[in-house]
Structures are given as structure tokens and as C-alpha cells.
């Protein structure tokens, strides 16, 4: 017995933004370039009135229904987002009420992006291992579309909105060999600068999401191989011992470069980006769920997860099935 991911469900907004839509708005943007380099054909985007709490509730209800999970079993909610409904209250508290969960449970938000799922697994495991909770509802819910300027073709091509809900409890599998990393020195390279309490929104570019793609890419090339090495050292395993690698689905080009750099064979490297885009903290659980449903994960398999991005923040672990 160990602590494991019992089930994952997800929610994608109904609104879809296709490459065709983008090429109509940006005629100078070569559509083949987006498809080939980013590996993305479409993204789901929240409607104007749809928020992170709405997506969280929808993903969670789906989890309860699909896996016959009783609402009364949940005794802790951990919700990862960078687009909360409010400064306060906590989104997880709003979600507890809307889902009709018990009141004698814990509920917290944490603010991370593309590394969020790994940190959420780490926190969930710690709560269960220390007997503070038995069944953690781990939610990732992100709506970067709300931060992106309408005429920002690069970021609109990359990011999609989504939410996932995972049930973490005692079970057959294990989640082990965590490795974490942080470098706040990179904070200006992926940032929504205005609109917090340091800088008010002032109708400039700084009101919107800014990403320095080149800097983020070189950060990734430098740090991801290190995380992979650290996790392998901790687990005393080699690249060949891992049955499947699921990395944060940043974009296909970046992933393909990381795969080659790490000498991971194509059949052990999972992609799930074409129809959803980069969904920030939801990419790993979406890919994990898809891999599981497509029988790419069997009993006793070892799956390495690695997340990396805004902060900078990065981390990884191995799931033993």
C-alpha cells in the first residue's frame, strides 16, 4: 500500500479557438509554423463569464460521477491556480461550497503554473502520510486566456484553458522520488506585471501576460535534464527503467528537443497537446489521464512526471503503478 492517484477527470470549456480562427485574425501568421512547431491545432477557451471556480466544479463533478466517488469522502481540497475568481476568498473555499462537500475539511489554494501538479502531488502525499487527510481532491484550474491580450498572437497560439480533478488516497501505487527547484530570478520572463497590489493596471502591455519565449526555453534546456537526473539518482533507476515520461506539455518543439537531449525513445515519451494546447498546471494530469485511458500505463509501470515554468519553478517525481 502507498499513496496514489486514484482517478483523474477533467473539464475543457466549450469555446474552441482553432488555427483557422487565428490565421483569420493574424493573416501574417503562417499556420503551418504553428502546427509544426507548437504541435497545437486547437485550444479550449473560457467564455467571458466562465471562471476558474466554474471549471473546478465541473471537473470535480465529473470525477465524482465517472469514478463513483462520494462527496463525503473528500476531506481536503488543494487547488492550483494563477487566475483565481477573487483576491479573497480562497477559490478552494468557494469550490467546497458549490460542490456541497462536508464542512469539516481543509481547503487551500496555491499559486503555481506549469510545475503546479507536481507540487500538488507532493502536498497531497504529505497530508495523507501525516494523517491529516485521507482523500485529497487535487484540482488544477487555469484560465490564462483571461490574462492574454487579444492581439498577442504568440501566447494565444500556445495557451488553452482547462481544469483537472484528481483523487489522491491510499492505494496500490506510490508517488515517490520528488525533486523540486526554484529560481525567482526568472520571474520577469513569464509574468502578468500589473493588476496585483504592486502595480495597478494602467492600460499598457504590462496589464497582460508577458512571456520571453527564448529565455524560458533556455531555462528549460538547462533545468529539465537536471531534474530528470536528480530523480533517477534518488530512485536508483536509469532512463531505460522508466516506462513512460510525461513532461509539462509546453509545446511540441520544446518537448522534442528535451526528449532528444535526454535520449528518451519516442515510444516512451507522451504527447497530449494537439487538441488542448498548453493548459499550464493541467497539462500533466490531462496527459496522464489520456495515457492511462489508452492503455499506455500498466500495473507495475514507472511513470516520470516533470513540470517546469513560471516562477521559475520546477519539479518532478515518479509514479509507481
Amino acid at each position: 500500500m502507498g499513496i496514489s492517484i486514484k482517478a483523474i477527470s477533467y473539464y475543457l470549456p466549450e469555446n474552441v479557438l482553432t488555427n483557422d480562427d487565428l490565421s483569420k485574425q493574424f493573416p501574417e501568421w503562417t499556420i503551418e509554423r504553428i502546427t509544426n512547431k507548437l504541435g497545437i491545432s486547437k485550444r479550449h477557451i473560457c467564455s467571458e463569464n466562465e471562471t476558474v471556480s466554474d471549471m473546478s466544479v465541473n471537473a470535480s463533478l465529473k470525477l465524482f460521477e465517472e469514478y463513483n466517488v462520494s462527496k463525503n469522502e473528500i476531506d481536503y481540497i488543494i487547488l492550483c491556480t494563477q487566475s483565481p475568481d477573487y483576491y479573497l476568498p480562497t477559490t478552494a473555499c468557494v469550490v467546497q461550497h458549490r460542490l456541497g462537500l462536508k464542512q469539516n475539511i481543509g481547503a487551500i489554494d496555491f499559486n503555481l503554473g506549469c510545475s503546479g501538479y507536481i507540487y500538488g502531488l507532493g502536498l497531497s502525499k504529505a497530508l495523507i502520510q501525516s494523517n491529516q487527510a485521507n482523500n485529497v481532491l487535487l484540482i488544477t484550474s487555469e484560465a490564462y486566456s483571461k490574462h492574454i491580450k487579444f492581439d498577442d498572437k504568440s501566447n494565444r497560439s500556445i495557451f488553452g484553458d482547462a481544469a483537472t480533478a484528481s483523487l489522491i488516497s491510499n492505494g496500490d501505487g506510490k508517488i515517490e522520488d520528488f525533486d523540486y527547484g526554484t529560481d525567482g530570478g526568472g520571474s520577469n520572463n513569464l509574468i502578468v506585471k500589473n493588476g496585483g497590489l504592486k502595480f495597478k493596471k494602467n492600460n499598457t502591455e504590462d496589464d497582460y501576460l508577458f512571456m520571453n519565449g527564448a529565455k524560458i526555453f533556455s531555462f528549460t534546456l538547462e533545468k529539465v535534464p537536471l531534474v530528470v537526473k536528480n530523480i533517477l539518482d534518488k530512485s536508483k533507476l536509469s532512463i531505460e527503467d522508466i516506462d513512460l515520461f510525461i513532461f509539462h506539455q509546453a509545446n511540441k518543439f520544446m518537448l522534442e528537443n528535451l526528449r532528444k537531449k535526454l535520449k528518451i525513445s519516442e515510444n516512451k515519451f507522451y504527447y497530449f497537446i494537439e487538441n488542448v494546447g498548453n493548459t499550464v498546471s493541467s497539462t500533466i494530469p490531462l496527459a496522464l489521464n489520456d495515457a492511462y485511458k489508452n492503455n499506455r500505463i500498466k500495473k507495475n509501470d514507472k511513470v516520470m512526471l516533470v513540470g517546469f515554468g513560471v516562477g521559475y519553478s520546477w519539479g518532478g517525481c515518479i509514479i509507481y503503478y
Partner: peptide
């Protein structure tokens, strides 16, 4: 553009 910068960094690394 940023995509070009990314592909260039990858080429240099490879």
C-alpha cells in the same frame, strides 16, 4: 521572433 529564438537555441544546443 520568439519562436525563431527558441529554434536557434535548440540548434545551438544540438
Amino acid at each position: 521572433d520568439s519562436l525563431a529564438a527558441m529554434t536557434l537555441l535548440a540548434m545551438i544546443d544540438n
